[in-house]
Design a protein around this nucleic acid. Structure first.
Lengths: 195, 195
DNA sequence: TCCCGTATATCCGGCACCGAGTATAGGGGT
DNA sequence: ACCCCTATACTCGGTGCCGGATATACGGGA
């Protein structure tokens, strides 16, 4: 059976091991330090499952089993050639081919007609504020990373995220305005339904 | 134990049942007809699991068990009062509170430095083209829906999606250009690493 | 010296989810 | 009268994922 590219955590593992051999716990630490867990969901339970799976598919190998005192054994893994190939090919796919993601907000907004227009307006305004906050937080973080001398390429994904958040904020602002002054198509029957 | 708002399919079920009682298979059909499966992932296996779960939590009730000939029994469900409350509250949360989604592309682009710049450029251009195609397809669909007399509110989530896709296309276009003419921060060491 | 909070490192049981399988009914063609 | 294809309606086994439990080491304060 061929390896299934479901959990992006496996991608992170391959990427880390392509730097140097590590044991799972060290991978987690490194991901934390680099703020990588903001981009790829990290979960200790899943980490060991994912490492096992990669091992089974021979994309990584157990290169050493250390034992310090009475502590649990630490298995150190290295990436294999097949693993490096998998990493690069997976990366290519992720970048070149847009994937259906089913964002939760799309599901929510598609049913917004079930709520009274006044309520919808309040909720959208709340989201707008939350998105604005995230944007300023991101701006601060970027400032700090750039100040540390890191090149743009090292935080390119944050640049992308900011662009997306700005677009979302703009859309929310438009929708709020259109709901407030009743110019959203179908506003009359929407109001009528809720009294 | 309180109901866990994980699978948005449960949201769709509550929304459908708030129109009229249905059996699971009919829910699936209705979702298909309305293009709802483009916004909420539909999977027959999950559908029955989700319905069971809603039933266990008494958010829906089995209002009838029909039996036509020798065909398998069809259980018709209705939404309870608690179910309607859950639907509305869940909707509010989905709209007002942005959720961390971990988009696959963010994971991919964050590691783009592992690929040679020329390859990255090609891949990003490919994605740009794919996104452009999705945009034209969406525009056609919107035209058709508007032509059928449906109000904007009925396809508001597509409007949102178009806005997001346009923003993504713009960002990809920028990144491709910056990679091509070497103005992306850290381009020199990026090139150097790959020879 | 004892204690306790934190860091280290992994394991495991339960459950949601998925995709493929199953079985009958209905309808149209020859 | 027979066949086959599609639509109907659900079922089930396998698996990946998650959160919390487990167990030891270490360092610092009383």
């Amino acid at each position: 059976m061929t390896f299934k590219r479901t959990n992006p955590l496996a991608l992170a593992v391959l990427a880390l091991l392509s730097e140097r051999p590590m044991h799972p716990y060290e991978m987690a630490q490194t991901m934390r330090e680099r703020h990588q867990e903001e981009v790829i969901k990290l979960n200790y339970g899943s980490l060991y499952t994912v490492v096992d799976s990669l091992h089974k598919h021979e994309l990584i190998t157990a290169s050493a089993v250390q034992k310090a005192g009475n502590r649990p054994e630490r298995t150190v893994y290295s990436v294999t050639e097949a693993g490096t190939a998998e990493l690069h090919d997976w990366l290519r796919e992720l970048i070149a081919v847009p994937a259906r993601e089913y964002p939760r907000f799309e599901a929510g907004i598609s049913l917004v007609g079930l709520l009274p227009p006044e309520d919808a307006l309040t909720l959208v305004r709340q989201r707008e504020a939350a998105v604005a906050e995230q944007l300023t937080a991101l701006a601060v973080l970027l400032e700090r990373l750039a100040g540390m001398g890191l090149p743009q390429l090292a935080w390119i994904e944050l640049d992308y995220r900011m662009a997306m958040l700005r677009a979302e904020r703009a859309w929310l602002s438009w929708f709020a305005a259109a709901t407030a002054d009743g110019t959203v198509g179908g506003h009359d029957s929407w109001e009528e339904r809720h009294r």
